[in-house]
Design a protein around this nucleic acid. Structure first.
Lengths: 345, 345
DNA sequence: CTGAAAGCGCTAACAA
DNA sequence: TTGTTAGCGCTTTCAG
């Protein structure tokens, strides 16, 4: 039962609109609109009056109405191509998502988190995006995605790639860390620590990260680089363990190990220990990412910390430029990582 | 049927609207609206015609317009009270977020992920929620939150708590796993595996999970329960290590250990190993959560897997009921966990 | 069952 | 610099 008292209560408590503000401030609706959209071309005195009315009423803009009027959706898609269940264990992903969400919330927008696990999902996702359900997209790619990229390119949807899109480097806008330089840094550190054989467990070599981290390692090692001490992994713990077992078989006297991700490094340390090696006394190990795994494993990993937040912010900034219509030539941005010394090397 | 003019209209740049569909199907706008909202009270023949027009035009609803007309925002808040940076490392959180997102997307809605790290954030969050920016909220609480809960209760915002809200059990709607029963299960398993002293490292005892997991442990151990072999932790790796060191000092002959979270269990195993104990030969260990840590640690943990997805789905269902209808009595739901046997016990 | 029409709250173009 | 007005696309009465 709704009593008249409750009804009255409810209607008097309804959210104030732009008209309420205009009435209270004694101005027209358009003026209020101008004030809440930057306050340009409004006399200071009037602007103050409007702002005061806004405060008194506790007014805040109705995003649905604004989006409807502007012809925007108010949401941005964050697309990840990794397997969905693995995705939330990736600390980088989490930090990306968190940074995007927080930043978008500041402008009353939403983040739509989506996976594209297989080709079918990619197709329906392409439909969704092309359909105008979002204002733009941020792509976190972990494998090659020519179909989706091409589809997106053909559509009018503004988007920015997180990481270097192999094969599309010059055609698209992207923000990435300098994997090669970062790998160079950490491997140089490792090489300075130990004498003797140094091996590496790489990421998937069809990704730019996997490839460039290997390049950086090769560069840092110079003459000491041993092509036979390269095992390829797939970012998984298991592949880190198996890759290390392989290297140990090839070179029992292994002294140093660069593992291209912390999670794989956790697997590597397990394998090393199982083989009776002490870390770092017998084999020094360095990882990459500075993820949760880095401190969960014993000994804690020496690794590279990537500027994820900065990457996220820059990507969003570039995306917003393109949404606003400043879309000129593609924009590319490369950021640097930082060495974190712990006990594993 | 379809004139070229109509076709031309439809295939023009802009997204088709409900009016385009109505014109093509030769019906009124209201009828189309009825069809896309369930198709009730529409003659089958007409409904088919409308659906056909929708297909031809590739029409899909504009959420902003719908929300504006319905007086809804189209978004649901997921509030977590944990420290923000820790939060994305919690696998439960990730699965919750993913399940919510996916489910909401099905109904054209969004998930707003927010933290409430301290009291200040909680207050501004309270403002935000009370302001009508979201249609409802899902609360993942990790500590006591009387202020926020009371504030929310006072507002008209529908919400559901994930986990048991201590002190508000009867006043609010919530969905939780049966911590006591789950702890009972895994500790019974442990007790069947080893003879001799069994200890436990608990979660924070001011949370319902921490408390109930201890209760379940006590129940399962019966006469074998030793009050002196209870160390209290705070879910952190470190507290797992320190708690275990304490227990080892009190009972060097410790044979079994129930650690109330996998992350703490990882710390426990580190401490055990440092003290020269083998796991599980000398000390058998069981964890709780089946989180990423469970398989990252060596040996892999025997632990309890919680029905996170089901919890998420049920919570959302209950929330939607409350958003749709006038909230009746609070709804409570308790779900069960499952034992996962690995090598640590 | 169906169509017409009145908004939902806001932006932006156009006058003034 | 301002106020006025015409939509944005949809839902929801209200007649018929």
């Amino acid at each position: 039962m709704v009593t008249s008292a409750e009804r009255g209560d409810a209607s008097s408590r309804r959210r104030p609109t732009i008209d309420d503000v205009a009435r209270l401030a004694g101005v027209g609706r358009g003026t209020v609109s101008r004030v809440i959209n930057g306050g340009h071309n409004v006399r200071p005195a009037v602007r103050d009056a409007v702002n005061q009315a806004i405060d008194i009423l506790g007014y805040s803009v109705n995003q649905s109405a604004r989006n409807l009027a502007r012809g925007r959706t108010g949401s941005i898609a964050y697309i990840i191509s990794d397997r969905g269940d693995r995705l939330f264990e990736d600390p980088n992903f989490g930090l990306f998502a968190r940074t995007f969400s927080r930043q978008l919330r500041g402008s009353g927008r939403h983040l739509l988190i989506t996976t594209a696990e297989d080709e079918e999902e990619e197709n329906s996702l392409g439909d969704y995006l092309a359909f105008g359900h979002v204002d733009g997209a941020l792509l976190g790619l972990t494998r090659d995605h020519e179909p989706l990229l091409q589809r997106l390119q053909a559509s009018r949807l503004p988007f920015v790639v997180l990481g270097k899109p192999l094969g599309f480097e010059n055609a698209l806008s992207w923000v990435a860390i300098d994997d090669e330089k970062a790998a160079f840094t950490v491997v140089s550190y490792l090489a300075g620590k130990v004498d003797g054989a140094i091996g590496t467990v790489t990421g998937p070599l069809h990704t730019s990260s996997g490839r460039e981290r290997l390049d950086g390692c090769r560069l840092a090692l110079g003459d000491r680089f041993r092509p036979d001490l390269v095992a390829s992994g797939d970012w998984s713990l298991r592949s880190g363990r198996e890759g290390t077992e392989l290297l140990l078989r090839r070179e029992p006297g292994l002294r140093g190990l660069f593992v291209a991700s912390d999670l794989m490094a956790a697997g590597a340390i397990g394998a090393l220990r199982a083989a009776g090696r002490r870390v770092p006394e017998d084999v020094a190990v360095v990882g990459f990412d500075d993820s949760a795994a880095a401190t969960m494993v014993d000994p804690a990993l020496t690794t590279m910390r990537n500027p994820i937040e900065q990457t996220a912010l820059e990507a969003l900034r570039i995306l917003d430029e393109r949404i606003a219509g400043d879309a000129g030539a593609p924009v590319r941005l490369v950021l640097s990582s930082e060495l974190v010394k712990r006990s594993s090397a």
